[in-house]
């Protein structure tokens, strides 16, 4: 099972150091991967709570939320989605290279992923900036100028927008820091034996963070975008 199965048989494999309480490498490998999956389940529940709150308010104030979501820049959002999906590709390639023992390429793929992650965060920061600039960031006691109807629910929309994308960005920053920690090892050629465990686990995490965005993007930017004015009753 596990990594060893995908190793090219030509690679002379050195057994990775097995921690004292495991019987063998397979057990350690399976335990770590299951541990990460379990952690991701907790993350699903965590983001699930926030998304649940958002959906309930969306359902309670459909018009206000539709109008507010029109304030978000759908093109920047789309571009960021593209960037993040590409970063999922690079991290997946990194895992692949770790399997095949091409250690330096693992390093480059992680650098690429971090680079793409940084672009995403930069664009997100710019989007935040424009919200502050247009006085639609309902944080602390900043002025909130909302020309349209329903300033109350609109505030909730932007509050949740900042809250949810903020927590997502925080997860990305954590992911970037963790990936950076693997880079030196990659360039020291430490993945030449196909010992991919660490890269694989961080890869799982990164894919998950992407997946969260795949939910946030339509929920915040796309749903009911066609509604720009209150319908005639």
């Amino acid at each position: 099972m596990s990594t060893t199965a995908t190793l090219p048989s030509a690679t002379a494999k050195r057994t990775p150091v097995v921690a004292h309480h495991f019987d063998d490498w397979d057990q350690q490998y399976d335990a770590c991967v299951l541990g990460m999956w379990t952690f991701l389940v907790t993350e699903v529940m965590f983001f699930g709570g926030a998304i649940g709150v958002y959906m309930i308010y969306r359902w309670q104030y459909p018009m206000a939320f539709a109008h507010a979501s029109n304030e978000l820049d759908v093109w920047l959002g789309t571009f960021n989605t593209f960037i993040l999906l590409t970063s999922s590709l690079t991290v997946a390639l990194g895992v692949r290279y770790a399997h095949t023992g091409e250690s330096r390429k693992v390093g480059w793929m992680l650098i690429g992923t971090i680079f793409l992650g940084a672009i995403f965060l930069g664009i997100k920061a710019y989007e935040y900036y424009t919200k502050f600039h247009h006085n639609i960031a309902p944080l602390l006691d900043l002025p909130f100028d909302w020309g349209g109807a329903d300033p109350g629910p609109t505030k909730i929309f932007f509050g949740l927008y900042f809250g949810m994308t903020g927590i997502h960005a925080l997860h990305m920053i954590i992911g970037v820091v963790l990936m950076a920690m693997f880079i030196p090892a990659a360039f020291r050629n430490e993945y030449r034996d196909g010992n991919s465990l660490g890269v694989e686990v961080i890869g799982l995490y990164w894919h998950f963070v992407d997946l969260v965005w795949i939910f946030l993007f339509p929920l915040l930017y796309l749903v009911d975008r066609a509604i720009t004015a209150p319908p005639a009753l």
Partner: peptide
Amino acid sequence: GLKIGIFDPRLGGD
């Protein structure tokens, strides 16, 4: 902390 209205009815929250 940030005064985002989520649960406070005065801010439209529930």
